[in-house]
């Protein structure tokens, strides 16, 4: 009975989409897009601006001291969006499978790599999904996850040590006042983290006003005062920029290759 309801529900959903396609034209589709964009944003906006404790037609949130009548829906809608977003994974999967499948089936150069891709993908999927039921698959999963996946990720991450060195070397060579300032600050903060660096100002007293010039104090001040203030200011600009873009998207004022397209 449940299976039947699910199948009928699916069929009804597809039929609804078919009818929607049949009985709408470009103009009405554009109106639908604008409306749904607005309503999607309006829900979250209303949930934010309506004060806690506000009810609707006698319906109150379970915790009126903290929530309004829309707040309990946030989690449920979040769950729905998470699930819908999850279904989109197939788009990427199809692309990867098509790309590597073509290479493999046509014997193009690099087919060995495409084969390796498929073996790794299928192996990890099967082992990941069914390891609870099989000791062999648990072993395979350990080999793939601890032997390959984690070390590969850690290795790519650790390459940053080399790259940060080469980037710093190039940046140190740049002859401009701004680059010099940037590297001087980087140098102070780096030196303050190692004993050899701290030795540079070890001779300064630990008490009194001179203590503020010890390298670890200067580094701490740079990070917690100047850096914090500069990032805060940059953040205000980014926040206003993001607010402007959100407003344009919400009110469908955003024009561009995607939003302005004919439907």
């Amino acid at each position: 009975m449940l299976a039947l309801k699910i199948l009928l529900g699916f069929a009804a959903g597809i039929a609804f989409l078919g009818l929607l396609d049949r009985f709408t034209n470009t103009r009405s589709r554009r109106l639908l897009m604008v409306s749904f964009t607005f309503l999607g944003g309006l829900f979250y906006l209303l949930e934010f601006v309506i004060p806690p404790g506000t009810g609707f037609l006698g319906w109150q949130a379970p915790n009126p001291a903290r929530d309004n009548f829309l707040s309990p829906l946030i989690e449920q809608i979040g769950q729905v969006v998470l699930v819908i977003g999850g279904f989109a994974f197939g788009l990427g999967l199809l692309n990867l499978a098509a790309l590597h499948g073509r290479t493999l089936l046509r014997g193009r150069p690099g087919w060995v790599n495409s084969l390796a891709f498929f073996v790794a993908m299928v192996g990890m999927t099967v082992a990941g999904l069914f390891q609870a039921n099989s000791p062999t698959l648990r072993t395979v999963h350990r080999l793939l996850f601890e032997g390959l996946y984690q070390p590969l990720g850690a290795s790519v991450f650790s390459i940053l040590a080399f790259f940060i060195t080469t980037a710093a070397y190039r940046a140190f060579r740049i002859r401009s006042g701004e680059a010099t300032l940037m590297m001087a600050a980087a140098f102070i903060v780096m030196m303050a983290q190692v004993p050899m660096g701290m030795m540079l100002t070890d001779w300064l007293p630990t008490q009194g006003w001179l203590a503020y010039f010890r390298i670890e104090q200067v580094s701490d001040w740079l990070m917690t005062v100047l850096n914090m203030a500069a990032l805060r200011a940059v953040g205000f600009g980014i926040g206003i920029g993001g607010l402007a873009m959100s407003l344009r998207v919400w009110l469908s004022l955003e024009k561009g290759t995607y939003f302005g397209k004919e439907m």
């Binding site: 790794a120 993908m121 999927t125 793939l144």
Partner: peptide, 14 residues
């Protein structure tokens, strides 16, 4: 690199 991407895809699916 291809093995890594394959593993990541499989991990993502599971």
């Amino acid at each position: 690199e291809h093995i890594f991407i394959g593993l990541a895809t499989g991990y993502g699916i599971s």
